[in-house]
Computed example of a mutant assay.
Amino acid sequence: MTKLTRESLVSRLFNDPKNYPYGFSRSGDFSINESKALSQYGVLIAALVDGEISPSTPEDENFLAAAFGKQDPQSIAEKAWVKYQKRINRPKMGSIYGSHKTSIEIDGESTGEDDDISIELDEE
Rank of each mutant, 00 (worst) to 15 (best):
Y20S: 04
K70T: 01
T111D: 00
N89E: 01
T102R: 13
F24E: 02
K86S: 08
I96L: 04
N33A: 13
F24C: 03
F68K: 15
N62Q: 11
K18N: 03
T111S: 03
I53A: 07
S25C: 05
I119W: 13
E120G: 06
P55G: 01
K83M: 01
D122L: 05
E124I: 14
G51C: 05
G51N: 05
Q85V: 08
A80V: 10
K70E: 09
K79Q: 15
L121T: 08
S31N: 10
Y22S: 10
A67K: 07
N19R: 07
K79M: 15
A37Q: 07
G42M: 05
S75Q: 06
I117G: 00
D50R: 14
D114L: 07
F14A: 08
D114A: 10
I106N: 04
E113V: 03
E78H: 09
F24H: 04
T2N: 10
P91K: 15
P73A: 10
Y22P: 00
K3C: 00
A65S: 13
D115N: 14
L13W: 12
S25A: 09
N19K: 09
I104K: 15
S56Q: 08
P21D: 02
T5I: 06
D116E: 10
I76P: 01
P73G: 11
P21I: 07
K18Y: 09
N62S: 13
D50T: 11
P91L: 12
G94Q: 14
T102N: 07
E52A: 11
K79W: 10
V49K: 11
L48G: 01
S39L: 02
G69T: 07
G98E: 02
D107N: 13
E34N: 14
D50F: 10
K92T: 06
I106E: 06
N15C: 08
T5C: 05
G23M: 07
T102E: 09
A37K: 12
K18V: 12
E105A: 11
D16W: 10
R6I: 02
T111H: 08
K83G: 01
R26V: 00
Q85N: 12
L64H: 01
S54C: 00
A77L: 03
A66H: 12
T111W: 05
F68V: 07
T5R: 12
Q71Y: 03
E78T: 05
D72V: 08
L9F: 02
E78D: 04
A67R: 11
E123I: 15
F68A: 00
I32T: 14
S75L: 11
G112D: 02
L64I: 04
N19G: 02
A65W: 03
I32P: 03
I88Y: 09
I45F: 05
G28C: 02
